[in-house]
Design a binder for these strands. Structure first.
Lengths: 124, 124
DNA sequence: CCCATTTCTAACAAAATTGTGAGTTGCTAA
DNA sequence: TTAGCAACTCACAATTTTGTTAGAAATGGG
């Protein structure tokens, strides 16, 4: 997400839903093409900007940068800058975000299961 | 989502991610402004088209219709048409979707917790 | 015949997200 | 002095999602 027009019906609706309940709030933070992937990679290991680009082949500089910035603002990840040249920046999960992982495990099981059901239905 | 240009980088990336893991697949199905709300309402009670419009005040006919159609295709809900005039249609969750609800409970707890952390940070 | 009801659809417009390609900064090693 | 690296940023374009307004179809009641 870039800039939003805060008076648009679209944004008004989004904000309304975001405040409705915790689930919607969470999903709002996680929406964004590469955010889940970024978090997934970070759950294995802290990563630098260029490392992300290597392990997420199709992501562009711009999207990576945008997403990282938003996720930092949203308290999902932390940014650590080392005083080196050339610059070194490392990203890591926040403690709160680590707690999401066990939930994802269940979501993963559900997703794979549902996908199988869907594929069987389509074949008929 | 309406029609997609299947050759666009955007769609190629999306499809790639959708096949990556169950979590991403699940989130792809649930993305869409009102989908979670629709499912949440259905978790309480089966609903007709006009009933949705009453309990989700800001939703437009078009978005409701689009979402319902996609969710049916995705196996998230079922559509039951009664042979009456004027027409009567009832929507309900599929058994698979019901299993999501306990996961949402945890997501809800996480979301509310995370929101609190965030609000405290902003106040500093 | 005219109207009301219910479940949508169609055409169009606005806004948001995602992608592309090039450029920036600051230092250091050759 | 030129090149190179790491981590971005910028302007612009393409694509996708969301919203608005006006209907359509089928049928029973008055």
């Amino acid at each position: 997400m870039g800039k939003r027009k805060i008076t648009s019906t679209n944004t008004v609706n989004r904000d309304y839903l975001k405040n409705e309940c915790g689930t919607m709030y969470a999903l709002t933070l996680l929406a964004g093409r590469w955010k889940m992937t970024i978090l997934h990679k970070l759950s294995k290991k802290d990563l630098r900007f260029t490392e992300f680009k290597l392990c997420i082949p199709n992501i562009s500089d711009r999207m990576l940068s945008l997403h990282l910035k938003e996720m930092e603002k949203d308290g999902l990840i932390e940014r650590k800058l080392y005083a080196e040249v050339p610059p070194k920046v490392e990203y890591k999960l926040t403690p709160s975000t680590r707690k999401l992982i066990s939930i994802w495990d269940r979501m993963n099981v559900w997703g794979n299961n549902h996908r199988e059901i869907q594929e069987n239905n389509v074949q008929r």
